[in-house]
């Protein structure tokens, strides 16, 4: 039987979270930019002076990702030792 280092399980899970977050980030960014931005310019509305597609895609998108990263790191990431000696201790 193959014995898997317990730290690798954590590392693998966190790498998948990274992939998921990037995917979500892309969909949000793409959806608002091209969903709202493909309308004619006359129909744009403006938030804080910025075109709405840009505001949601880039400004809100960026802030949301920051919040998500903080939440994920604080609540879903586990601290593990990197050195082999620490593991034995």
């Amino acid at each position: 039987m193959e014995e898997t280092d317990w730290r690798f399980k954590i590392a693998h899970r966190e790498a998948w979270i990274g992939v998921g977050l990037a995917l979500f980030n892309f969909i949000w960014w793409f959806g608002f930019a091209y969903g709202l931005g493909s309308r004619p310019v006359e129909e744009y509305s403006y938030i804080f002076g910025l075109p709405d597609w840009f505001f949601y895609s880039c400004v809100v998108g960026f802030l949301l990702i920051c919040v998500l990263v903080i939440v994920i790191v604080k609540f879903f990431f586990t601290e593990v030792p990197f050195d082999e000696e620490e593991e034995i201790r």
């Binding site: 730290r7 990274g18 977050l21 880039c58 998108g61 990197f82």
Partner: peptide
């Protein structure tokens, strides 16, 4: 600017993907 914002992903992606396994294996 929209294109440039694709770079936000580097801030977390590199460290999450390479992350702990890379640090453990490198050591």
């Amino acid at each position: 600017v929209l294109l440039a914002m694709a770079q936000v992903v580097t801030g977390y992606f590199v460290l999450m993907i390479l992350g702990k396994k890379y640090a453990i294996m490198a050591r």
